[in-house]
Amino acid sequence: MAHNGEPETVTIDESGANLASLEAINAEREIPTSIRQTKYLNNIIERDHRAIKRRTRPMLGFKNFRGARILLSGIEVTHMIRKGQMKDDGVARTAAEQFYLLEI
């Protein structure tokens, strides 16, 4: 949902099906969603999830959903810390310090 009455922006690849469905949704909305198309968006997403694929492929799947959720969440958090996407309250911390602060 949009916050404070501002329109949201959705970034999609140049798939016609995605564009058609978003345009149909916009027809019903009071504040339409702006659509930004990127030709090679799927490549960007696949590159970002390469670390997850590398970790999970040798495992041949998960025994249950809970285990999958825990492992994938940990991988994503570690990735976010490494990319500098975690909030650090203006204090410069190493990736290890940020990770250890998560358990507090």
Rank of each mutant, 00 (worst) to 15 (best):
R36C: 14
P7S: 14
E46C: 06
I52T: 10
T38V: 11
V91N: 00
A27E: 11
R55H: 12
N64L: 07
R66T: 11
K53P: 01
D88C: 09
A92R: 02
I31T: 10
D89S: 11
R47Q: 13
I45V: 05
Q85L: 09
T33G: 03
G67K: 08
F62H: 06
E23Q: 11
A51W: 00
N64M: 06
S34Y: 09
A24C: 15
I44H: 04
T56P: 01
N43E: 13
R47I: 05
I81M: 01
G61K: 04
I12G: 11
A27D: 13
R69L: 11
K83C: 02
Q85D: 06
G74P: 00
A24T: 15
Q85R: 06
S15F: 15
R36Y: 08
A17E: 12
P58K: 03
R54H: 09
L71Y: 08
G5A: 11
F65V: 15
D13I: 09
D13C: 12
N64C: 13
V91I: 06
T9L: 11
L72G: 03
G90T: 02
H3Y: 15
P7A: 12
L72N: 05
G74F: 01
A51G: 01
E28P: 03
Q37M: 12
Q85H: 05
S34T: 11
V91F: 06
M86C: 03
V77Y: 00
M59Q: 07
R55Y: 08
A17M: 14
V77G: 00
I75C: 02
E46I: 10
N18P: 09
A51C: 07
